[in-house]
Design a protein around this nucleic acid. Sequence first.
DNA 1: GTGAAAGCGCTAACAC
DNA 2: GTGTTAGCGCTTTCAC
Lengths: 349, 349
Amino acid sequence: MFKINEKPTIKDIARLSNSSIATVSRVLNNVDYPVSNELRESILKVAKELNYKPNIYGRMLKGGQSKEIGLLIPNISNPFYSELVSGVERICIKRGYTPIICSSYNDKKLEKKHLDTLLMKKVDGILASIIGDSADIIREMKLENSKYVLFDQNHNDDSCYSISYDFENSGFIAASYLLNQGLEKIAFLSTPFDRKSRQEIFEGFKRAFRLKGKTFSEDYLIVEGLPENEIEQNAEIQNGIHLTKIMLQKIGKPEAIVAINDITALGVIQELANRKITVPDDISLISFDDIPLAEMVTPKLTTVRQPAFQIGKIGANMLIDRIENMYEGKKSIIIEPELIVRKTVMEKE
Amino acid sequence: MFKINEKPTIKDIARLSNSSIATVSRVLNNVDYPVSNELRESILKVAKELNYKPNIYGRMLKGGQSKEIGLLIPNISNPFYSELVSGVERICIKRGYTPIICSSYNDKKLEKKHLDTLLMKKVDGILASIIGDSADIIREMKLENSKYVLFDQNHNDDSCYSISYDFENSGFIAASYLLNQGLEKIAFLSTPFDRKSRQEIFEGFKRAFRLKGKTFSEDYLIVEGLPENEIEQNAEIQNGIHLTKIMLQKIGKPEAIVAINDITALGVIQELANRKITVPDDISLISFDDIPLAEMVTPKLTTVRQPAFQIGKIGANMLIDRIENMYEGKKSIIIEPELIVRKTVMEKE
DNA sequence: GTGAAAGCGCTAACAC
DNA sequence: GTGTTAGCGCTTTCAC
């Protein structure tokens, strides 16, 4: 018999089926190779009896693919990213890969450590939304000539495959919609513009004003941030509360508010409610992302959809296509945002 | 030189540092073994120059630990589970493990496939919240003599390590709190009692009535379910909406509602709002879980905390302790729930 | 059709 | 202190 309490190997199968490891390997891998039916049956029978499971490490050593991809994100418990992950997962399931999910919790050291782990595991590729020095991370991935695709990154590096939203247009859509409802005193609430995305949304926002022949007064730009530390998972909502307080103090009640994302918008609603100010009756509110929550809360959020699930799916397909050397699309994919009208903006009747 | 475009191995390092693979292995593993400083320096220098990363597959083949644990859950994009995952992740980071997260999306076939993948990867252990036939899954894990810990499972199997909440007490706490506020016409809204947890919550709920010398009229028990299919990610909130409609039709407006979880409660609020019924002014509402959302929405949810993050942390520690043969706690850990008073229950003044 | 044997990168037992 | 070597489970080449 084979070793007690040890996993059976092809050797055991070979012995018990009176054949050789080579033949067993051929049969089990269903490789296109002539094997007598009799032997084949016998081998399969023994394999089944032993409840044989191949040892992937033996296989990997021969230089196989790990069929794993790394997924480097800031925080799995942020609904935006858990949606993104979900999209990646679906594609991975369909295409036979396992995603290794790593949250860096806004800790650059940890992010680097995760990267090292992934590289060591020799994952077939990496999907990353980097919080730290992206140049650094990219360099390392290149060094290991790992395949990778970046989400929404601040990279100036043309050599990277990436996927992102058209943030400028997002901002434009939001502002245009408000202006079209006759709302003009609009406050823009955001955490600091340290990510390109936020700056771009603001640029599009201003473009909408320009196009209507109006000017945006910088007094209405409220940018402030608790230092970005998402370990406190409700940091973003705290930002919304904080920004609202500052806004009310600086400029009083505007007609409408643009919040940099849905979670921030939730904070805005909460702080306004504290002061008996109702959305949308007293102030209209629009934000960005359209996380699933957006239509679960009351009132349902009017928002500009930047679909996390979809970007996850597209990104995963892009990466796997690259891994399998069949990617033929563009190096940089841009997803167009979409206005989702719900209940937080008072519409002109 | 070593092979172009290939990863350097200890062989390459040995060659370039004029030593042997054994010595290289010793130095790199920092094993307690005498090596001359000169050689050590030289080896480390070469390793660094080559940007050497050990191949874990070679190591694993020798029977090492994978330092991975499997995490089998229903759905990563459900906030409850993304919190749980987050808890597991923290512990894994601290203790040097990588969690492999697998969502089964309520598909039993997929769950089984994930399990096979995990077993094949020879993860050091598995944390599981099983949706399918748990006996089946447990049998397989035992067969592979894999270490495992179950979350909140319907297992009758005493031989299992598990962690769960005291659901009966949760139900008791919720009902007692409402009754103490003078609320007596209380509806209980839940999806079908196919999980032990829901039945237990209801038992505790009834116990509170009994203890106050009151009886709960079964008319007020509203159990109904869209077939459980969380692929539609907002299935749970739809359940809340659906249950509310049925309730209003069957019994009209109760004084208070107990909803089986926070997301369902969000659906309740939404449907009531549609009909201009306000929480808590017209109807009080309490639910279970205390997902982060619960205090982000307006009104903030009064709920009985069944802390997902904490259960994730404890479960991960339990599993890793078992893996490292240092677990000394109980086979079955029960977490006590806690009442979190916020804004959805009208308090007696 | 089938089997023997080399070798993937690493660790560890053994030899010097 | 250092080096040689066997062997982990598998795939694959080569020989029969």
